[in-house]
Design a protein around this nucleic acid. Sequence first.
DNA 1: CGGAATCCTGCGAGATACTG
DNA 2: CAGTATCTCGCAGGATTCCG
Lengths: 128, 128
Amino acid sequence: MSVANTDVPDPVLTMGSDCPVREVLDRVGDKWSVLIVVLLGQRTHRFSELHRSIDGISQRMLTLTLRALVRDGLVERTAHATVPPRVEYELTELGRTLLVPLTALDRWAVEHRNDIRAARERYDNERA
Amino acid sequence: MSVANTDVPDPVLTMGSDCPVREVLDRVGDKWSVLIVVLLGQRTHRFSELHRSIDGISQRMLTLTLRALVRDGLVERTAHATVPPRVEYELTELGRTLLVPLTALDRWAVEHRNDIRAARERYDNERA
DNA sequence: CGGAATCCTGCGAGATACTG
DNA sequence: CAGTATCTCGCAGGATTCCG
């Protein structure tokens, strides 16, 4: 996707055919990635721990999401050659830096969730 | 979706069955919302302007995305009763506040996009 | 335990046509 | 111009089964 020329200088965000924000959101904007990053931000987890901790995720999606995070260098996977196998996931340094803007977004969410709820209710009631 | 009790105090983000970050991302993490918010952050746009500016969006998705943003109180819709009709969209105050954490995320994206690209290439090459 | 491989389905979203 | 209304299809993602 790309944004056509609006011939107005961009005050804040970098736009264009390669929009960085969208690039991040394409990676992390899915249903589970943020949740996993946040959990791993607390401590290292093993696969089954994540599976139990994240209510509603399928084994398949956990595997796929983790693999994508590892691929992007946000998460490190360590497989211990024991029996039974033990695989641990932890944030990389890069992953930890992502926690910062994610926290900013979280703060915004906490601060304004009521505004959104209110606006939504207002909207729904108006055309009820 | 919810996160089960991990009995570890959360250092940064608010988790639990109602995870605020995820709540935001569920709204704004889709393919077009951020793009629209950013464009409207620059100036007011009319429907057709957005349609032309956002390369690849269908009329339908533009309508639906705008409606969701309006519903959440992030965007205000003003329909001028002229002929031909003229509908203008602009960020609300709430919408403008969202621009801030979005900018933080953008900065992270710009700063680390190369790290991600590199990690991705490394990963792909390793198992080529 | 931590996956991989398959099968199957819903619904997200594109294309097209019509309207106030 | 700024939308609705259908119809249709792809594929994201769930359920299930098998493997090292």
